[in-house]
Design a protein around this nucleic acid. Structure first.
Lengths: 248, 248
DNA sequence: CAAATTCAAAATGTATCCAAAAATTGATTT
DNA sequence: AAATCAATTTTTGGATACATTTTGAATTTG
C-alpha cells in the first residue's frame, strides 16, 4: 500500500465531493469547517485547495478564500470542442507509430465493450466496467500519440464537471451502440494506419457525445446534478462531507 | 496598487527564477533554504510550490519534496505541436465571429511590428516591445476564438521553458521579417473571415518557429540557458535568489 | 571487501498559534 | 427609514513548533 499524505487524501476527497455534486458550484469552502469535517488541520486542507484551484475545480481570491468553481455552459461546450480536437490529433499521431501489440489492445477493449453490451442494453451493474473501458480506450490512444501534453491537457478538461468522459448517458442503448461502433472503427483505422480517418471518427465521436449530452441535459437536468462517479469511496472518517460540525 | 499575498509573490519570484535559468532543471528545492532566501516562512513557500507544481514548472513527490521540473526534448517539441494545433483552432473560430474593431486592433499590432522592424533589424532595445507585441497578437486571437480553454491551455504550454513565445530568436532578421509577414497575413485572413487560410498560416507560423528554435538550439545552446524574460524584476529583498544562506 | 543494517541528522508534513484582513453587527446620523 | 461608520466577530494568511519520513554515513556482518 502506498503512502498517502493527508493533503493528497483531502484533495481527492474534495475533488470527488465536487464532481459528485456533494459540494455545489459557487459554494464557499470555509477552511475551518472543511478541515473539521475531514478531520485534519487547516494546513494540509489549504494545500489541497491550492492544488484544486490550479486544476480548475476550485476558484480562489486572496483574503477571501476558496469557492467551488462555477462553469458556464460555454465553458463546458468549449471543453468538449478542445477535447475533440486534441483527441483527433492523438489519433493522427498514434496512427503513424502504432504497433501490432497496441492495436491488439485497442481491439481487445472494443471486444470487452461488445461483451458488456451483449444483453442488448447497458445494465446498471455493467456501467462502471463500461465506463472504465471507455476511459482506457481514450487514454490509450492519447498515450500512443507520443505527445504527453495531450493526456495532460485533456485531463485538465475532464475537471469540468459535465464534460468528463466518466459521464455516460447509459439509458439510450442505440446511442451507446453507435458510440461503441465508433470505437471499433477507430481501432481498425488506427491498426491500418489510416490517420485522417481515425481522427475524423474521433472528432465526430466526441462532438456527438457533446451534442447528445446537451440534449439530455435540456430534457433531464436532474440526472446531471449528481453525477455518479464514486468508484472507490475513499472514506475519511465516517459520514458525509457536509453536515458535520465540531463536537467539542 | 493591489494587495499581494506573500504566497503569490513567492510563486511569481520562483517562476521567474526557473524561467530565467536562475534555478536549473532537476534542482532540488529545499524548503528551509528557499524560504530563508525569500525571507518568508515555509507555509507560504509550500503554497507557492504547490501552485507551481500544478502549473507544471515544478515537480513534486510526497515526502521527497519539490524539484525544478525537467523537460525532455520530446516534451518541448510536443508543446509546440499542441500550440500549433490550438492556435490554428483559435484562428478558425475567431474568423467566424471577428468584428471590425477586432481586425483593426490586429492590423494595428502588425503595424507596430513594422515600426519596430523599420531599422532593418530587431534592435536589442526594441526586443521587449516586439516580444510584447507578439504575445498580444497571439493572445488576442485566442481570446477572439471565444473558447477560453484555448488561452488557458496554451498558457500551460508556455510554462515549458523553451517553448514560451516570450522566447524570440532576434538575431536572424530574415526569419523575423518572414514571421512578422505571417502576422500580417493572419490578420488579413481573419478580417476577411478566411478561417482555414488563417488557421493554416498560424499552424505553419508556430511549426516553423519550433523548427527554427531547434536549429538555433543545436547551433548555439548557450543562448538558451538563460532566457531573458525579466520584464519586471520583482525583487524581494536584495541579491540573487541563490547563494544566500541564513545569517544567524 | 562488499552488502546489509542501524541510527542520527536533516528534510518534509501537520498542528497550533498569532496577525492581518474581511465580513458583520449595531449604533448613529441624516 | 435608509445610509454610513465604527467596533466586534469571523475568517484567512503566515510563523512557529512538533511529528513523521527520508537520507546518508558509520558500523556491522557475511
Amino acid at each position: 500500500m502506498e503512502a498517502q499524505t493527508s493533503t493528497e487524501v483531502a484533495a481527492a476527497r474534495i475533488r470527488e465531493a465536487i464532481l459528485s455534486g456533494e459540494l455545489l458550484p459557487g459554494e464557499r469552502l470555509h477552511q475551518d469547517r472543511l478541515a473539521d469535517m475531514l478531520g485534519i488541520s487547516r494546513t494540509p486542507l489549504r494545500a489541497a485547495l491550492t492544488t484544486l484551484s490550479q486544476t480548475g475545480l476550485v476558484s480562489y481570491a486572496s483574503n477571501r478564500g476558496f469557492y467551488v468553481r462555477e462553469f458556464s455552459i460555454s465553458e463546458v461546450s468549449g471543453a468538449f470542442a478542445i477535447r475533440a480536437e486534441l483527441e483527433a490529433m492523438a489519433c493522427r499521431l498514434a496512427a503513424t507509430q502504432i504497433t501490432g501489440k497496441d492495436s491488439e489492445y485497442l481491439l481487445q477493449l472494443a471486444a470487452e465493450g461488445d461483451r458488456l453490451l451483449q444483453p442488448g442494453a447497458l445494465l446498471p451493474e455493467n456501467l462502471p466496467a463500461y465506463r472504465q473501458m471507455n476511459v482506457s480506450f481514450h487514454t490509450t490512444i492519447m498515450t500512443l500519440s507520443g505527445n504527453p501534453w495531450i493526456t495532460t491537457l485533456v485531463e485538465n478538461l475532464q475537471n469540468v464537471p459535465i464534460a468528463s468522459d466518466r459521464v455516460i448517458v447509459w439509458r439510450d442503448y442505440d446511442v451507446i451502440k453507435r458510440s461503441h461502433d465508433d470505437h471499433h472503427r477507430i481501432a481498425r483505422a488506427l491498426s491500418n494506419r489510416q490517420a485522417e480517418r481515425a481522427a475524423s471518427i474521433m472528432r465526430e465521436h466526441i462532438t456527438f457525445a457533446h451534442e447528445h449530452l446537451q440534449a439530455q441535459l435540456a430534457l433531464n437536468p436532474q440526472d446531471f446534478l449528481r453525477v455518479p462517479v464514486a468508484e472507490k469511496p475513499m472514506k475519511i472518517r465516517s459520514g458525509s462531507l457536509k453536515n458535520r460540525r465540531k463536537t467539542s
